[in-house]
Amino acid sequence: MERVLLEVRDVNKAFGGVITAKNVDMKVMAGEIHGLIGPNGAGKTTLLNLISGIYEVDSGHIFFEGNEITNLPAHKRARLGLGRTFQSPRFMNRASIKDNLELGTDLRNQFTYIQSFFGKKGADFYSELEELMEIAGFTFDWNEHITSLPYGQQKLLEIVRAMLAHPTVILVDEPAAGLNKQEQERVSLLLRKAVDSGMGVVLIEHTMEMVMNICDNITVLNFGEVIAKGKPQEIATNPQVIEAYLGGENDA
């Protein structure tokens, strides 16, 4: 039987009069890339923020590996195994690449600050990093500042950093935006690597070719409401989705 890693049940959120999530239901299974698509302003990133705990839900429930996490703060959800990346890469801009990557391994190790101060070492992550960087397709001098990397590499490295934390589910927000074809391919390979190792992935993306190729299931949002769910082929032919999103985009 498939294991449910993440479940969003009847979640609602409004900012003033603007409804950004309305009775949203979604399930993410182990080893699944779950696409979350919809037009701009549909509430996709808001839903990721509700899941990761950056926003509080107005009503509804969020379950992670069977346990309710609705009222947990963001940092506790991260410690449970909810990783994420952002639309624009968010790093410690005044720190080195090494420090930024170690933020991911710190989350994996979860040592106390005192243990870390006295030099407690986690499992060696060099080999894991090398494997991931081979997929990402570039190398770096990790004593360099993170800002020395080009935008595309920063986006790839953000996924690598999230994976180094060994999360159970990764929420990935528009990883291919602003990337060239080759880099988009690398993103797909990294996400496939994540699910192959048993993680679940929630993917927000506007590049339909990528979504249709790598997603196992898709949820479509429009004005905060789920308008369709299913396999990529079903979504691609769903008249409601074509009208609200896919068709609109093609028309444009």
């Binding site: 963001a74 994420r84 410690m92």
Partner: peptide, 10 residues
């Protein structure tokens, strides 16, 4: 540098 990123990393 960014509290949201920090919280997202536990």
């Amino acid at each position: 540098d960014n509290e949201i990123t920090a919280a997202s990393f536990g």
